[in-house]
Amino acid sequence: MWAFINKLRSPKWFYAISAKLQPLFWVAATLLLLVGTVWGLAFAPADYQQGNSFRIIYVHVPAAFLAQSIFVSMAVSGLVFMVWKIKVADMAATVMAPLGAAMTFVALFSGAVWGVPTWGTWWMWDARLTSMLILLFLYLGVIALRGAFSSRDSGSCRVGAGHGRRHQYPHHQVLCRLVLYPSPACHFHDYRALCHDHGHVGTAAHHGIGLLQFFYCPHADAHAQRNSPSRSQQALGA
């Protein structure tokens, strides 16, 4: 077991094995995507309250899940890289960032589309929306930093540090494909989380997923309440 983990940390071995596995993951991803999409959009029964607009959760919830868990994974692999100097961890963090940013954008966009029939608005400064937006900015910052470093480092000495050498390893995105679309099976739990306006049943779980969420949500909540128009008017009118 330990020998296997040790092997995994060597980039050479890792790329060899991931190149072999990649086609498999492609097939699995395509199949799952197809089944999930068709099942969710065509066969699942319509919601008794929201009608067909609820079907957005088959896109929205997995995307939001990924957006947050990829962020945590990036943090973990960054830590692994810093503590144990495992290069694969750094490369993993590098390739996770664009995927995470894309998922965050998908979650935000699909949420906005769902918000129109349900809330009657594209956007509101709700705690969850705000924290997802900040998450998107964080992702973009990480990507920009990586980009700036790798363009600078094309001229400096580094023994196999991950960034700047990606051209050598075209298979680097393999592992990310694996997690691209978790099966729609988790939708039941999150369906409740999605219905923000019907109460906060799922919010604890939602908050717990991302460290970032955990940090920002309660504060943003407090902030939103404080800024609610009724209160400001009261205070100023008095």
Partner: peptide, 8 residues
Amino acid sequence: QLACERDD
């Protein structure tokens, strides 16, 4: 056995 690599 010191070694350093720059741009491959």
